[in-house]
Design a protein around this nucleic acid. Sequence first.
DNA 1: CTTCAGATGCTCT
DNA 2: GAGCATCTGAAGA
Length: 206
Amino acid sequence: MKLTQDFYNRDTRTVARELLGKYLVRVQDGLPLAVRLCETEAYIGRLDKACHAYNYRRTARTETLFAPPGTAYIYFIYGMYHCLNCVTEAQGEPCAVLLRGGQPRSHREALAWNRYGKSQKELSSYQRKNFLNGPGKLCKALNLTREENGISLLGDTLFLCDRLEDIGLTTPPEDLLPFSVSTGPRVGIGYAQEAVHFPWRYLIAP
DNA sequence: CTTCAGATGCTCT
DNA sequence: GAGCATCTGAAGA
């Protein structure tokens, strides 16, 4: 079923870990584009210098992090890309999980078109292999921008669920196999002093 | 496979 | 004005 507010209203690291293997669904032109998540990172404002809302810093950008759990926090980065997060913990605690990578599970043609402006068949093997392994890539493929910042993940246009049957598809057997979780330091936060080493990156082990 | 430069504009000081 | 929770294509090994 669709993940509820109770799912997001928990410790951010727990949510980040449990989001692995879940499906991110973005409805575009009536089509449910689905991605299986395989990489996430936790950001916890009250104690984490890597978090945009460290020490409860409140600015126009971080306002979304103070929204209720189960809100989408989408920000613009490096002048070109967007990153999608799920707001977590009790409202007022500025915390989120960055969605860093996934695997396509539906409408691959639409995903390829969003990402490269061409058909799936025209992609190079390099492009295929690195199709959704980055937060900017995820947003590009799902056509997510700041337009979607602040929308609820409990609604019907952008949400997470634990089975493809929830959107009228069939979950492939490989997705039902148990997996183990790897952890490690987060990516691209070299400025964050002691928080640089926090092992708050979660991946489905290879 | 790896490294590397360059792109590009918002955000906060 | 400096820096950024990134990606791409080209070039080298």
